[in-house]
Design a protein around this nucleic acid. Sequence first.
DNA 1: TATATACGGTACTATGGAGTTCCGGATCAA
DNA 2: TTGATCCGGAACTCCATAGTACCGTATATA
Lengths: 208, 208
Amino acid sequence: MTHTGLDEPKPRLGRKRDHTRDPEILDAALDVLAETGYDGMTIDMVAARAKAGKATLYRRWTSKADLVLDAVACMKSSGIDLDELPDTGTLRGDLVAMIKAPSIRDSERKLNVMAGIVSMIARSPELASAAHEALVEPRASANRVFFQRAIARGEIPADCDVERLCMIGPAMVAYSVLMLRKPVDRQFLIANIDGIILPAAGLRATTD
Amino acid sequence: MTHTGLDEPKPRLGRKRDHTRDPEILDAALDVLAETGYDGMTIDMVAARAKAGKATLYRRWTSKADLVLDAVACMKSSGIDLDELPDTGTLRGDLVAMIKAPSIRDSERKLNVMAGIVSMIARSPELASAAHEALVEPRASANRVFFQRAIARGEIPADCDVERLCMIGPAMVAYSVLMLRKPVDRQFLIANIDGIILPAAGLRATTD
DNA sequence: TATATACGGTACTATGGAGTTCCGGATCAA
DNA sequence: TTGATCCGGAACTCCATAGTACCGTATATA
């Protein structure tokens, strides 16, 4: 919700800027970004999608790059809430509990946004870290909690390579969506958990 | 090496087209593609890199899209040779034998090319299938051979989900390079084999 | 009510790159 | 040698889009 637009100075007179529209505009930008990629996206498209004037966009963001950076950064606060993670008592239960229709749609959208900016990322460290914070880190953090809980419970060995285990799910989803262009479903995610992640964590066939 | 350029009709008179330059030009296109992405790449860049004239490129390919499509398709014949796969007698041996410095460089280049065209792929089915054939399928095919051999030997269960197992390695590499922007090394790949792939295939700690 | 600024919308300018044309020189066949 | 076609290179046209300017209108303060 917070963004880095140039909205700090408080002018004294005249009509106030309608900041309630910022999220709508950023959301429109993300839609266009996911559909056409960074270079295919035009400011006119975003303005039209948000039913706003092009000048309005340039009043709030200095450039296309600035708008995209802000839009990507603002995805951080959507989706996974680290304070409300499931806690089912088992590693498998926690991982499965993360599979919900809205969560699948959310991660698919994030990946399409990622697809639209990957080629930029190599040339823009700012965008790279924004994308990492907003698209990669949230899900990795959630997984980290689950695996550390499982270690604390003695459910899996303490010398597990947690960072590597955290990658498996996101890596398989990203590969399926971006490389194979195959949308993921519940069955795919469950099979990843039971067929790859749990065995890699040292757990054999599920008894959950 | 074979490409889809417009080189069929044999003109009768005058100087012949120097087809030995085609691979150099396509290779230059791949370099630029990997460095700047599809939209960042200009025909002038490719021509300059290949020390060729822009007109020469347009004599051979009808458009930028055509050139890129051909360049991507031609990667198919580089890298993995399905007729010369290692056969060490164990699944782990085969997988480890695929890890070689040139192979790592090759797959890193392929992934950077992929990064440069992902956003196009959603809108160009032709490019999508070319990329799949050249960048995704070769490695998956090699892995398929290894897992099927292992099943035939009775080394791993016959009801293994081979397609899913084939994805793990490429998915982890792609995630590391594209999402985490972390180049892979031998240690990373070995850890993936021992920590994820073999356990998922039903093999416990390595005895190889 | 008067003033200042935001709004959505349209018209404009400036820039960069796709694709074309033309050049002098090189290389083939006859 | 000649004529056709290639080559690398440079100069060009054309178009899309980033970014700006201005319109009439809406909404805030004073």
